[in-house]
Design a protein around this nucleic acid. Sequence first.
DNA 1: ACTTAGCAATCGGTTGAGTAGAGTGCTATT
DNA 2: AATAGCACTCTACTCAACCGATTGCTAAGT
Lengths: 330, 330
Amino acid sequence: MLTKRQEEILKLIVIEYIKLAKPVGSKLICDELNCSSATIRNEMQELEELGLLEKTHTSSGRVPSEKGYRYYVDNLMELKELNGEEVFKLQTIFNNHQLELSDVLSESLKIVSDMTSYTSIVLDTKSHDNKLKEISVVPINPEVLIVVVVTDQGYVEHKDIELKGVSLDEIKKTVKLINDLIIGTPIDEVSAKLEFEIKPIISKYVKQHEILYNAFYDVFTDISSKNVNVVGKNNILKHQEFNDLEKVKDIFSKLDNEEILENIDANIDENKNINIYIGHENSVDPDVTIIKTNYKTNKDEGTIAIIGPKRMEYSKVVNLLDYIKKQIER
Amino acid sequence: MLTKRQEEILKLIVIEYIKLAKPVGSKLICDELNCSSATIRNEMQELEELGLLEKTHTSSGRVPSEKGYRYYVDNLMELKELNGEEVFKLQTIFNNHQLELSDVLSESLKIVSDMTSYTSIVLDTKSHDNKLKEISVVPINPEVLIVVVVTDQGYVEHKDIELKGVSLDEIKKTVKLINDLIIGTPIDEVSAKLEFEIKPIISKYVKQHEILYNAFYDVFTDISSKNVNVVGKNNILKHQEFNDLEKVKDIFSKLDNEEILENIDANIDENKNINIYIGHENSVDPDVTIIKTNYKTNKDEGTIAIIGPKRMEYSKVVNLLDYIKKQIER
DNA sequence: ACTTAGCAATCGGTTGAGTAGAGTGCTATT
DNA sequence: AATAGCACTCTACTCAACCGATTGCTAAGT
C-alpha cells in the first residue's frame, strides 16, 4: 500500500519521464513537492524496492518500471479533455458520410498517429451481421469471368475466375442456385452452406463442378477474412527508445507480419472499455505498449490499437481511442 | 576516352565497392591485374581527375562517383544469367493463373525485394484499353446504394453512395442511361462523356441530379486513377548508406508520398528497355538509384521500379526487371 | 519518528593524447 | 611506361582524465 506522497512521487516521475525521456532525479521532484531532495530519495528507494521504479545505473535518476507504469494507469492517471483542435480534425472525418467505415477508421487513425507520434493498427473483420445480398457474374471473355459479391451491409468483394470448358449456361445455373439458396446467409456461414448444400447439387449437373465450386469458395473466403491496416509506421522512428537500427528493423518486421498483428486482439478483457498492455504484457514486443479497444457496429467489428514506446502518453491515447470508438459506434 | 586498362580498373572498383561497401585501395586491384600498386595508383589518379572516382578523405581508397557508376552501366556492365532458383521462384507466380495482374506484380516484386534487399515500386494505371462493360447498382437501404463498375478487361470498382431523397426509380433511370450511352467507352474518357452527354439529360428529369452526378463522377475518377504500391520498404534499413536515422526517416517519408512516387515515371526514355537513374539523375533522393521499366499488356500499363543505394547490384536488378517485364507482357 | 543537510562514491559522457593501420602521392630508379 | 620506396595523411580505436548529475548514507535537527 502506497502512501499519498509515494503515489504523488510515482505519478510525477512517470509524467516527467514521459515528457523528457530522461531518468528523473530527486531534485526535480522536490521542486514540485515541498520537501527536500533527501526525503524524496528515501521515498524513491522504497518505491524501487516495491518494484515500481528502476535505475539505469547506480547513480542515475529513476525510471518507471513496467509495474510502475501499470500502477500509474490503474490508479493515478487522470484523463484530461481532448483539446479543441484535435476534436475538430477528427470530427470532419466522422461527419464525412461519403466515406466507408474502413476509410473513416484509417483516416482518423492517421490523424491520431500524426498527433501522437505513435503507430496505429486497425483490425477489421466483417461482422457476422453481414448477410449475402447479391451475387452477379460478368463474363469478360470465354475463359474468364468476374464474380461480384455484395452483402446487405454494403461490402463488395470480387474475384476473377478462369474457367476453361465450363459453359456460360452452367455458370448461370450455379449462380442462380446460389442466389436462391444462400442469399441472406451470414457471410461466415456461407462456406459451410456452399459445401453442404450447393456442392451436392451442382456436382450432379455441372461437368467441371470442382473448379466452379473452388472459385466460389475462394470468393467467400476472401470476403470473410480479416483485414489488417497499419498507419503511421514511420512514427516508430521518432522515439528515442527505438533509435537503434536493429530495434527498428525488428519492430518494423513485426508490424509487417500480419499473423502477429492479428493476435493483438487475442486476450482482450471484455469488461474494460480500453485495454492497455505494457511491455511484457503484450505479445508483440517487450519494448512497446499497446493500447487497444474493440468496436462493433452493425456493419462491422474489429479492433483499433495504438502502439508506441512504454513511455507513452497514456491518458491522451486512451482518450483518443475512447473518443473514436464512441464516434464510430454511433 | 579511357584506355582498356582504365576501364578494367573502374569496373573492378565498382564491382568491389558494390560487394564490400568499403573504399577500394590500389592493392586490392593489383592482385587482380598483373601490375604493381603504384601503377594502379597513377591510373586511379587519372580516373579521379576525369570525375569517375572519388575519395572519402585524403588517404582513403577510391569510391565510384555518380559519373563512374554511369560509365559502368553504360559501357562496362555485364548482364549475367539469372540463377535457377530465382527464376523458379518467380515462375511459380507467373504460372499461377488465379492471380490478378496487380497481385502477380506485387508478389513477384516481393520476391525480387527479398532476393536483392532493395525496395520495389509498382505504378499501376488502368490502361486506355479498359472500356466500360457494366454498371450495376445494389440498394442497401433507402438511403445508401452501391455502384459496381466492371470494365471489359476485368477491373471492378465500387463505391457507396448516399442519396437522400432520390428515388430508386430515378437512380435506375440514370443507370440505364449510363449503360446505354457510355458502355464501351474507354475509362479515361468516361468522365468527359459523363459531363457532356449524361449530365444535361439527367438534369432535366432527375430532381437531385447534382448529387447523383457527383456520385458517379467519383466512381469513375477512382477507377481511372493511378495505383502506387511499395514493396519491401524495410529493406532500406539493410544498407549501410542508410544507417543514419535521419536519412531513413527522410527516405521513408518519400516512399510514403505518392506524389513523389507517381513522378518516378516522368522522364522515361522510351528507346531504352530499362532506365537507370543514378543519384542526382532521379528526382526522389540524391542518395538512391532507381531502375525502372514500363510494361504494357492489353489490360494494363504501368511502371515497375527498384530503388536502392547507388551502390546497387545493377546487373542483377536490370536482369530481374527485364525478366519480369517480359513475363507479364506475354 | 520523520525530515534534512552534508558528503563521499558512482557512473555516463566528453575530451584529448597516443597509436596502429591502411592507403595515398611523389620521387628516384629500372 | 612501370615500379619500389618512403614520407605523409587520415580514420578508428584505446586509454586516461575530468565534469556533472545523482545517489546512499550518516549525523544532526525538528
